[in-house]
Nucleic acid binder design. Structure first.
Length: 206
DNA sequence: CGCCAGGGCCATA
DNA sequence: TATGGCCATGGC
């Protein structure tokens, strides 16, 4: 199985606020470009700093990630939202998952995937993130015919223990695995887990 | 040169 | 609801 093959690949890198920003910057963008952007903050990527920066200054920093007009505005709005909770992870965690998810989705530039990534990797809500690698991975699994976001998310979520740490580590595993073996072209060439349904733990049906 | 990368928005039918 | 154009950079 993936876990024994790769070992524990950990979590999304960075502290909580960096993770939010990274989740926005990585939209349809290579992670290497995101790293270039993050380096422009030199150990000082805090909501207090972003609060002070103008949109133009923010664009200058995130420039290498592309789509900078939309992403800069999105980061600003996300930061305004986060201020309501005192920039506190713990405070957000006291709120219902669905409420936070709706609030994130209401921010322009944050769709289902980015919202779920923030919910999981920043606030540790048990939300399964569906990204391009998960979709590609799912093409080989006996998932329902419908491959839309909600259906895929329900499929993975329903077949795993409802545990945020597990969701996160499993997602990272598939992601890193995909980067290694399952590039778009040629699709999944050399993948050692072809046609293998590889859930580390199944939820008991009730 | 073109394709691709851990999307999302909007217009159109 | 489901496509398609658009946004933009850097690696290859």
């Amino acid at each position: 199985m993936l876990l024994t093959y790769y070992g524990d690949l950990g979590w999304w890198p960075g502290h909580s606020y960096e993770i939010m920003i990274g989740a926005i910057l990585v939209q349809n963008t290579a992670w290497s470009n995101v790293e270039r952007s993050l380096e422009n903050f030199a150990e000082d990527l805090t909501p207090q700093l972003v609060e002070k920066l103008t949109i133009e200054e923010l664009i200058t920093r995130i420039y290498p990630s592309g789509f900078y007009h939309a992403k800069a505005a999105c980061i600003k709005n996300l930061t305004v939202w986060y201020k309501q909770y005192g920039y506190s992870v713990q405070t957000v965690q006291t709120q219902p998952l669905s409420k936070i998810r709706d609030e994130l989705l209401a921010i322009r530039g944050i769709g289902a995937e980015t919202a779920d990534a923030i919910l999981l990797y920043v606030f540790y809500f048990p939300t399964f993130v569906i990204d391009a690698y998960i979709k590609r991975f799912a093409e080989r699994l006996p998932v329902p015919a419908a491959r839309d976001y909600k259906t895929l998310q329900a499929y993975f979520s329903d077949n795993l223990e409802q545990d945020a740490i597990l969701f996160g580590k499993y997602h990272i595993l598939i992601l890193e695995h995909g980067k290694k073996h399952c590039k778009k072209k040629p699709r999944c060439e050399g993948c050692p887990f072809m046609n293998e349904c590889d859930f580390p733990k199944r939820q008991k049906s009730s």
